[in-house]
Every structure is written in C-alpha cells, then in structure tokens.
Design a protein around this nucleic acid. Structure first.
Lengths: 208, 208, 208, 208
DNA sequence: TGATAAGCGAGACGGTACGTCGGGTCTTCCC
DNA sequence: GGGAAGACCCGACGTACCGTCTCGCTTATCA
C-alpha cells in the first residue's frame, strides 16, 4: 500500500482488479446484494477467491468499491453555465443512479453495515463521499466565478459550506427516493434546487 | 391465524412473543443487523428456534417488527414556539436519536431491506415517515400564522412543501450523521436551519 | 455418547451412519486415501457435510471406522478343527485384505497419523485392534480345548500370550506384505504358521 | 541433470540443498508428516519455495529423501555373541529407535506412501530392508556355528528363513509399539524371543 | 567485458479442500 | 397441538496449502 513498499515479489495484477470490480457490479445487477457471494464474484471474474480476499477483507468493502466505481462513472459535473441548471442536472443524475435496484440496495446495505464498522465507514468516506464532494466544490467555484454565490473570504467556512451543500443534496435526494419513496422528477427537482440556492445565497454561514 | 381457528391444542405463549422481541432488540444493540442470528435470538429469549419460526416467517420479518417497536418507543414530537427554534430543536432531537447505536443501525438496515421488500417499505411509510410528517405540517402552519413563511393559497403546494421540508431535514441530518460521519452539533444546526429557512421563505414552489 | 444422555431432540439417523461408512469405503476404492475428501464422501452418502462432522472429527477418524468395518466384514474365524489350519486361513484372509489397494493405503496412513495423534491411536485400538483380537482369543481357546496348546492356569499370562500372538501374526504379515514387499502365499504361510505354533507350544511365558 | 548439461548460468547452491533437507527433518519432528507444508519448510530453510520446487517435484519426493537421510543416520547394527541375547538386544535397540517421534512418524508415513509409489517402495527396500537383513544372516550363521539352530543344507531355504525371521522380528516389534501401543520392555522381549527361537529350532522350513 | 543463462527471494496467482456457521426444516419426546 | 432440543440439508464463509507464475536481482560461464 505504501508507495515505497511492494518492490519485491510478483506485482498484483491490475487486470484482476478491474475484472473483480466489473464482476461485482454484474453480480449485483443479476442477483442483488443479499445473494452476492464472494465465490460467485471470483468465478465471474475468472479469478481465485484468494485473489479477491487479498484485496478486500470482506463483501462490504468490495461492494463499496464497486459502488464507488459506478458513482465515478455516472456522476459528472454538467457545466451548463448556470448554477441552478447544474444542480438540477446533478440531482437528476444521482436520482437516476438510485433508480438502479442494485445501486440503491448496495448503497444502503453498505451504509447500514458501516454504522457498526469504523473501517467500512472510513472506506465509504474516502471512496464515495470525498470523491463525489468534488462535484460540490467545482460547482461552487464556478458559481462564484459567475457571481451566483458570494465569493469566499475564508477557506474554513468555504469547506463547511461545501459539506453542508453535499449533505443537503445527497441526503435529501436519498431520503425522497428511498425513505419517502416519492419520485425525484424534474418538478420536485426544480422546487428543491430553488429552495437550496436561495438559502445558500441569503444565509452566510456563522463565523465558526 | 384467524381468531376462531385453532381452538384445540396448547395456546401460544404470549410470554414467548415478548421475550423474542426483547431478545431481538437486545441482539440488535449488541451485534448489529447483519451479525444477528436466529439461533442467538432464540437462545437469548430462552426459546427454541421452532417457536420463533412459528411466529415469523424469516429473519427479516422478525427484525422489522423488532425495529418498529424500537421506533415506537423512541420517537417523541416536542411542541415548540418559533420556527427557527422549532427546526433546530427537532434537528438536535433527531440527531440525538441517531446517536443511539441500535437506532442508527436499525434505521439504515430497515431502509436497506425495504429497497427489496414493498411490504416493508409500506410499513416504514406508515409507521415512521407519516408520523413525523405531521410535525412538519404543524410547524409550518405556526410559522405562517406568525408570518415567518408565506401563507398557502392552495392545499396542493402546501403538501408538496411539507414533503420537501421533511425530506430536507430528515435526509440532511441522516446523511451528515451516518454517511459523512460528522457531528450534528448546535453550530452546524444553526447553519443548516438558517439556510433552510431562507430558502423556504424566498423560493415559492412551482405551481405544479 | 453417555448412555443416559441424548434423551431429548431429534435422534441421529442410523441410516446416515451406514450411508457415510459405505460412501467412505466406496470413495476409498475409487479415489484412494489421499484424494478422499469429506465433501465427496458427504455427497456420495447423500448427506450434508455437517452431518458427517457431527460424527467424526476429521478424515482420519472416519477412515479408521470405515477400515474397521471392512475388517469386521472380511475377517472371520474359520474353525477348521485344527489350530494350524485355522491360523493359516486367517493369515491368508488378512493378506487378501492387504492386497486391496484402498485397504493397505488407508490402514498404513491411519497408523502413520496415529503416531502423532493419541485420540486417533485410541480409536484404532478400540475399533480395529481390540475387535480383531477376538480371533486370537477364540482360536487359542479352541486349541486348548483340543489340547493343541497348554491350558491356561492364570488369566494374566493368558492375556499376555494373546497380545503376543496378535502382534506376531498381524505384524509379521503386514511387514512381509508392505515393507518387504513379498507375497504372503500358502507356502510362506505354512512356514510362518509352523514356526509360530512350535514356538508357542514350547515356550511358556515368563511368570510376569 | 547430466553432468555435462547446464554448463552456463548460476550453479545451484549446495548450501540451499542442505538447509532444505535439514529444515524438512526438523519440521517432520515438530509437526509430523501430514501437517508438513512446503511453505513451512522453505521458511525454516530461509529459502524461497521456488528453490525447493526446482530440486524436488513435489512434497512426497522431498520428504522421502529427508526420511532416508534420517534412517541413514540412526540405523546402526551392533555385533553380539549369543543368539538369544543377540535377538533381545536387536529388538530393544529397534524399539528404542521407534521411541523417537520423528522415526516412528517417518517410518510409517514412508511405508504408507510407498503403498502407492513403486519408486519409493524400491528405495525403502534397498535403503532399509536389505541393510537390516544382513544382520539377520550374520546372527543366524553364528547360531548355526554354535549349534543353536540346525545347519542349512540348501541356500534357498536359508534365504527364506532369513526373510521370515526379519519379517517376524521387525513386524512384531513395530506392531506392538505402534499399533497395539504397548511397551517393548525386557519382559515382553524375553517372551517374544523365547517363542521365536523355539519356533525356529523346532520347525524346519518346507522344502520350497 | 559484456552478453547470456540460470539461480534465487519474494510473493501473487488459480485451484481445491478444509472445517465452521447460519438459515430454515424436520423429528422426537414432553407437557 | 405447543414447545424445547437438537439433528438435518444446504450453501457460503474465510483460511490453508498446493504447485505455478512473474517480477527484480545475483552469480556464474562463454564469447
């Protein structure tokens, strides 16, 4: 793991890494989270179970990475030239992701497990949360360039604002889709986005 | 199952029912959802596995009922005066609830499970979502009376607004606490509440 | 195991016991000792692996019992009316058993393992050694009735004599067949038996 | 393999050869045959598994060579005077050898393995059986000189007698020590030797 | 002297079997 | 007929070794 380690012995196969993650996603689609077995994933990937366990300690960690790869692939910053339109597009992208049964189940299952497993919690944070927070940071910077949001004078409140925005967007959409069970359609998205933008523009964060 | 059926034979032990649910909740606290085993629950309850399966068809159904009982016991809706204070109090109360290990685990586990089980999804809606939503309606009406929020002219947008508020509050708090893993402290609560209130006040919902 | 235990719960299936031992012997014939797997035996017996492990702690103990069953089945006291003829018949029976590849390998493997496993050693003693020693006791009693051997005056030397005879017969035959690798044919059997009988008749054991 | 082949390239390390065999023997003492792993041997020898497999095709071949080395080191043939004393001394010496854990395990393991491996069977014959048999021939000749045993008239029966004696002595002692699990003490040795000598003296072998 | 060829340590790899665990069912005896 | 006990089948788990492979490096001999 360390950059200076692993100079000796046969190096790990990057091909195997890819095959395993692909197989995990495929298995997730075919059989769902609860029926997913390590042996099945290994077989699909054309890889020995040991190879799999050498990289991931258990099913949850593997699924986190597979889900993270899906997020990486499906979520991108649209850059439509307008903050409101950008947010609406990202919200709809995210909602579309949560429509996929394998993703909604896997994501929630992994979060549920993480409430009792700090290691897994850390992995979720680094592999999913922190990676997707880039969308917020990017969008916020663009909006400030355009003057849609007040420019930061201090880095600390800026980071706090990014965190708040991320939790509000991701949390609200997940809650609407999975807990309330209502559709995240364009109309709702408009309402939500409008509320969010007005709130952000009007309410400067406390000094902290 | 019917009340008039099974007039013969030994009646089921009500004591066993209670012991099983209590044991399930205790096991949930100790070991979490995924490590929970039927054998363990039976042993804790001092009951045979047979007895357990005679009442619940499988592990999911048992745990769902146990979790529902936990929520019934812990959810209380305080009655406050000022909109900002109302929201902040609710947020902090909810966050306190999510600090309890059995609640955070049980909530996410049940949501995860519900993504594959419509029966469970319906139960969550009626037992948890709808009950909390009444608080939102109440708080919003009070704020309109005080002029903190614009008065509704139409009942449909009013219901949509309540839904939006509910998803934003519950979703954002859960996401901050369980996914981002950051504390829901008074400072963050102030920032979040201010953003929310400003957004709600400034952004009239679309006609829909 | 204790006579008074096991009064509650479902009793173990005697059918499973038989099926497992039969399957073990069949697998021994088909694939030999080293390729024998618990999973294969279970599958052949139409039984779950757990059922197998509930009865035998490991492969060695299972094979001991399977070999013991073969011995029980193939070794019997001929009762030809003459000590010399009786011994020769038993020796040839035993040698025929050692001609079976699955028996010779399994027996030696199990003895080899037993040199490091007291539990296994005890099992071999009770299931094989002590059971086959009956042949010696029976043959010796018959010979004394006929006057071919001096009658015992003391039970202790009698038992010591039986042990000695058993070790001499079994050990010599195994050594000839498996170590020296020479055939145990009728001619050699005649020589060996003559030597043994003369020795036993002429050399009263020490008082002990 | 041929001396003139492989004239180029780095020569194999003689040190590694020795270290591997020593490590194998040490591991045999510590863990026995079946628990012996190639990885463990390699680690003990401070050598890579590759180095090990470059010299021996598989575990069996390695262990066979290691065991042969053990026997070469431990087998010594004393020269005695009187037939009865000769035999008793050899029996006790052999029994003492079988008390060493690595010898008892290695001997039986090698015999077990040889039931499926002609190459190994041949090696056992030449390295162990034939060497010990010379002692029998010598002892028998001395006994005939002294008149303790009838003199041979024919070389063929003489060889057969030597074989018989060898199988009877070695087989009986091994069986007593390892299968019956009883001590080969002086008393038992006296009984056994007396029986053997009387038998040999009284029973002339068949013409063959 | 520098190319060539093997040996070597390290450790990842595809496999196979292991022995265990848990789910959900069935069977026995007792109330 | 309910209940406790526990055996049963099934299937997945995570581990341990096997014997092979692929690296980077070392150490010989030959040109």
């Amino acid at each position: 793991m360390n950059p200076q380690s692993r100079r000796t012995g046969r190096p790990r196969s990057a091909e195997a890494d890819r095959a395993i993650l692909d197989a995990t996603r495929a298995a997730l689609v075919d059989t769902g989270w609860s029926k997913l077995t390590m042996g099945d994933v290994a077989a699909r990937a054309g890889v020995a179970k040991t190879t799999l366990y050498r990289r991931w300690a258990n099913k949850n960690e593997l699924v986190v990475d597979a889900v993270a790869a899906v997020f990486d692939e499906h979520l991108e910053f649209p850059d439509l030239g307008d903050l409101r339109a950008d947010i609406e597009a990202v919200v709809l992208q995210f909602a579309a992701l949560l429509e996929l049964p394998e993703i909604r189940t896997a994501l929630m299952a992994v979060v549920a497990e993480s409430t009792r497993d700090p290691r897994l919690r850390a992995r979720i944070r680094t592999e999913i949360v922190d990676r997707q927070k880039r969308l917020v940071l990017l969008g916020r910077a663009r909006a400030q360039d355009r003057g849609d949001l007040p420019r930061d004078t201090d880095p600390a409140p800026a980071a706090r604002a990014a965190d708040l925005i991320f939790d509000m967007v991701a949390g609200t959409v997940v809650h609407r889709a999975l807990v309330s069970g209502e559709p995240v359609d364009p109309e709702w998205t408009r309402d939500f986005t409008a509320t969010l933008i007005h709130g952000l523009a009007a309410a400067p964060l406390t000094a902290g």
